[in-house]
């Protein structure tokens, strides 16, 4: 199909010149803002990533030089460690691992809690308590995690001691091979509140007669969940999954608070956001590297944002 006939199909047949003008006039303010604050910076960094930078002044055209350098940078991808599955693997793989662990956990926990609280007395109090973590600034969450995992005073190690696992006690955020999972747990704690809230409202939207009908039809608890609840909350699952993927790809404050600008010992839990920050704000300033890493983030997040926005 040619572009022309496609457009003809999509455009309203009653659309005359006058109407078109009106539509454009009304869209102008919105489009202007969108262009200045969204499209502009994206194009700017897309173009800028192909140039050398001297501080904040644009230099010479460098082609893919910065891109190639970024993918060879151990801080972004540490190929040797990645193949051996040894931390640090670099910000990009670590960010993706974070996503792979975090998203299913927070989604399922959120759904589980929403189901658990659905028919409970005092559910609004319980929901608020779980959701509280999501409203807390993520920097604070990072600090709280430091306290939680502290080898002397931390509640987590205290718990291990109390159940007789003295040998396990350690500073969890300083253990290279484990630290990232300790932080992921914190992220899950935050995101569970969000997915629980979305699932709660989706569950409240299910007509109780449907579940009663399924009960009369002979479906037990599990079948009611599998056949009725799960298909009906599917659209919400899509939103929850993608929102948490986007949340993880943008993650910064928790990591910064827990491990400083380096992202833990040797960058074992460094993420893309942290690398952008490092490249742009610490000496030596590598502006083009910051742009490249930011663009990698964008390339991962954009299709998901597109999917969410185009959902019915």
């Amino acid at each position: 199909m040619s572009v022309g006939s496609y457009l003809e199909d999509r455009l309203d047949r009653d659309l005359d010149g006058e109407k078109l003008t009106a539509i454009l006039v009304f869209m102008l303010p919105g489009l202007t803002l969108f262009a200045i604050f969204s499209v502009g910076p994206m194009l700017y960094s897309a173009v800028g990533s192909f140039f050398t930078w001297d501080g904040f002044t644009i230099g010479q055209f460098a082609g893919f030089e910065t891109w190639i350098a970024a993918f060879q940078d151990d801080a972004i991808i540490n190929w040797d460690n990645l193949l051996a599955f040894q931390y640090p693997m670099g910000a990009l793989p670590q960010n993706i691992i974070w996503m792979v662990v975090h998203v299913p956990l927070s989604t399922l926990l959120g759904l589980g809690l929403a189901l658990l609280f659905a028919d409970l007395r005092g559910r609004s109090v319980l929901r608020s308590m779980v959701f509280l973590a999501f409203t807390t600034p993520t920097v604070v969450i990072g600090l709280v995690l430091l306290f939680v995992y502290d080898p002397q005073a931390g509640i987590f190690n205290g718990l291990l001691r109390s159940i007789g696992l003295e040998g396990m006690v350690r500073n969890w955020v300083q253990e290279p091979q484990i630290a990232i999972y300790a932080l992921v747990a914190g992220g899950v704690w935050v995101q569970t509140g969000f997915s629980m809230l979305l699932y709660s409202s989706a569950l409240a939207g299910i007509d109780p007669a449907l579940l009663e009908s399924a009960r009369v039809d002979g479906a037990g608890r599990f079948r009611r969940f599998k056949d009725i609840i799960w298909p009906l909350v599917k659209p919400v699952t899509a939103v929850v999954v993608i929102m948490s993927m986007i949340w993880v790809i943008r993650i910064f404050a928790i990591v910064y608070a827990a491990g400083g600008p380096s992202g833990g010992p040797g960058g074992v839990f460094s993420v893309l956001g942290l690398e952008v920050y490092q490249a742009a704000f610490s000496v030596p300033i590598e502006y083009s590297k910051a742009m490249v890493v930011a663009l990698i983030e964008l390339v991962i997040a954009l299709p998901m944002a597109w999917y969410i926005a185009s959902m019915d």
Partner: peptide
């Protein structure tokens, strides 16, 4: 027992056939 609800309570994500079939399937 079989019950017919005031708002019919048809499963919205199943076709008419799947709705009717559901109690047998279960």
């Amino acid at each position: 027992v079989a019950m017919v609800f005031q708002n019919y309570a048809l499963y919205p994500h199943m076709t008419v056939r799947e709705n009717i079939e559901y109690p047998l399937k279960v």
